[in-house]
């Protein structure tokens, strides 16, 4: 049976992980390779590395990092952050990434999704969608959540599917950082609207939240950052908890 995936997300700036990560077992918790390797040993099913460097220099450091991750870690990983051209994607895939996320660039030029899918195959093109529930609607935001677009979550999701996306990474801006649980109802609507896998993001605070994302939200995967980075939830315990609750996870 296909297992539900648990995906730790690492934000990287100028080649270093950000957010106050505290791991006694790591010599250098700021090293994204070491931290990703630790997560892979603990049972993470995939990893996501997001580059939040603003500078060109930071971006080339990130490509070097992708090579190191690919050499060291034997589970799949997705990379993203500021990806806007075929050349960007090519560079990251050649460095050894398995999938690449696009967000703002796809909103500004939806044809980019078709081009990327034709070039590299749908399986490695993940469209990230940041959306906020306001005035009774899920509005899509671009530029890292700073700019509101006229797009609606479900119609945009269907469009990216039609254009060839292989997966959707949906972050609820209302839930992100709250630790109050994922946007279960929106996840369910999204999952019912498309036939490509959906990754839930934003709101993980307890193990129960993951269960809800899978059971009620019917998400195919769930992504979280701080609950793992700060050791509030161990991947090992989370897998045991989900298995006890009859959710298919990898042993």
């Amino acid at each position: 049976m296909l297992a539900k995936r648990i995906i730790p997300c690492l934000d990287v700036k100028n080649g270093r992980t950000v957010k106050g990560i505290n791991f006694e077992s790591l010599k250098d918790a700021g090293d994204p390779v070491e931290l990703g390797f630790l997560y892979s040993q603990q049972g993470a099913d995939e990893l996501v590395y997001l580059d939040i460097s603003a500078s060109q220099e930071g971006r080339s450091t990130f490509t070097e990092l992708v090579k190191k991750v690919a050499a060291k870690i034997s589970i799949p990983f997705t990379v993203g952050g500021g990806v806007s051209t075929v050349e960007d994607v090519e560079k990251l895939l050649n460095a050894g990434a398995d999938k690449v996320t696009v967000n703002t660039a796809a909103i500004e030029n939806p044809n980019l999704i078709n081009t990327l899918a034709a070039h590299f195959g749908s399986q490695c093109i993940v469209v990230a969608i940041d959306a906020k529930f306001e005035s009774g609607k899920w509005a899509v935001y671009s530029h890292g959540g700073r700019k509101k677009t006229p797009l609606n979550l479900i119609t945009w999701a269907k469009e990216v599917e039609t254009r060839g996306a292989g997966e959707i990474l949906f972050t609820s801006m209302n839930h992100d950082g709250t630790k109050d649980g994922f946007a279960v109802q929106a996840l369910r609507e999204l999952s019912d609207a498309v036939t490509i896998p959906v990754i839930a993001s934003g709101g993980a605070g307890s193990m129960k939240h993951f269960k809800e994302a899978f059971e009620l939200g019917t998400a195919d995967a769930a992504l979280a950052a701080s609950v793992f980075h700060f050791g509030q939830i161990s991947l090992h315990d989370l897998k045991i908890y989900l298995r006890k609750n009859d959710i298919a996870v990898r042993n």
């Binding site: 049976m1 297992a3 995939e46 399986q123 997966e167 036939t195 490509i196 896998p197």
Partner: peptide
């Protein structure tokens, strides 16, 4: 593809009835 069975088939899934060069040691591995 359906809304229940998404395509691409993406993620970890288990092997069963392993034989031949793989051998039964891979049964139920992901």
């Amino acid at each position: 593809a359906t809304h229940v069975h998404k395509v691409p088939h993406t993620g970890w899934n288990s092997l069963t009835q392993c034989s031949g060069w793989l051998g039964s040691q891979f049964d139920n591995t992901f």
